[in-house]
Design a protein around this nucleic acid. Structure first.
Ligand SMILES: [Mn+2]
Ligand SMILES: [Mn+2]
Ligand SMILES: [Zn+2]
Ligand SMILES: [Zn+2]
Lengths: 144, 144
DNA sequence: CTCTAAATAGAAATGATTTCGTTTTAAAAT
DNA sequence: ATTTTAAAACGAAATCATTTCTATTTAGAG
């Protein structure tokens, strides 16, 4: 499993450092998204030294190379999620327990075409995210 | 036109203050989205006193009552846009000139149903935004 | 016109995120 | 195995967009 992550990092042109591997392992084990500070608090015990800026930097780099996914949260803080699904897809994120579920298909290809054709514009990226309560949390009716 | 905005504010349960009306007029005249500080710099000359926190507060309140639309920007700063289209729809935002164009339809209703049925979750909100370059900017090939 | 809850001012605080100069390290090259 | 070096990490300090707080003003109901 460590090999797998090391290969992913190598493929992304990034050095396979112990801290990066630890971040990936922790995030993969999580069922949901996590904040830089939360990851730092969990991981700093496993290293002699681990700076919060290092966690921020790595999460951002991993997100840019597509290894991690950024979550857009109403509170405007940064959250990241590990998703191994290589297909283009989007996410349903629970605002209560932070679970993330895949949304397999989106009609965005069609929308992109429409924008191009109608206005001559060029779509560089898109954001599609459903926010809500997962099955478990919806039952409990809680907002943690 | 001032009457129209006053009515909108009243309908939203908000007092029609001169500053709120000025914010709405300015944003309606804009073809694109604007930041709180930009609006403040433009408007503070028109009032004896106008605090930046007031602009922030009003933009947020107007956004919460649905009068304005928040733009999700990669630089993580706040931007707001005035859109008078009352139908449910989404936006294509130009990262260069900040123009905003309506996206009339989205397949999100279907996705919401799918999430509910498949996992028993409850979709509380969704984000769909296309980022890119509008027709004009795509031609120029510029990123301001 | 009076009254009051809502809105605003403005200075100060906040705090998540980033920067910077230095030190350490992964991994390529010998 | 050792050397080399560009990348990564440190961590204290800075940044700066956004929010908070208390006193003051005002929109609009009665
Ligand atoms: Mn996924
Ligand atoms: Mn619109
Ligand atoms: Zn949940
Ligand atoms: Zn444009």
């Amino acid at each position: 499993m460590e090999q797998r992550h090391a290969a992913v990092l190598k493929a992304a042109g990034m050095k396979a450092t112990p801290k990066r591997l630890a971040i990936l392992e922790l995030l993969e084990a999580e069922s949901g998204y996590a904040s830089p500070e939360e990851l730092w608090k969990t991981l700093k015990g496993r290293f002699d030294r681990l700076g919060l800026p290092t966690v921020y930097r790595n999460l951002e780099e991993l997100s840019e190379s597509g290894v991690l996914t950024k979550v857009i949260h109403p509170n405007r803080q940064l959250y990241y999620y590990f998703c191994s699904n290589p297909e283009h897809h989007h996410h349903f994120v629970c605002l209560s327990c932070r679970k993330v579920e895949d949304i397999p298909s989106c009609g965005i290809d069609a929308l992109e075409r429409e924008v191009s054709i109608r206005n001559g514009g060029k779509v560089l990226s898109h954001i599609l995210q459903l926010n809500g309560l997962c099955g478990g949390c919806a039952k409990k009716g809680e907002m943690a």
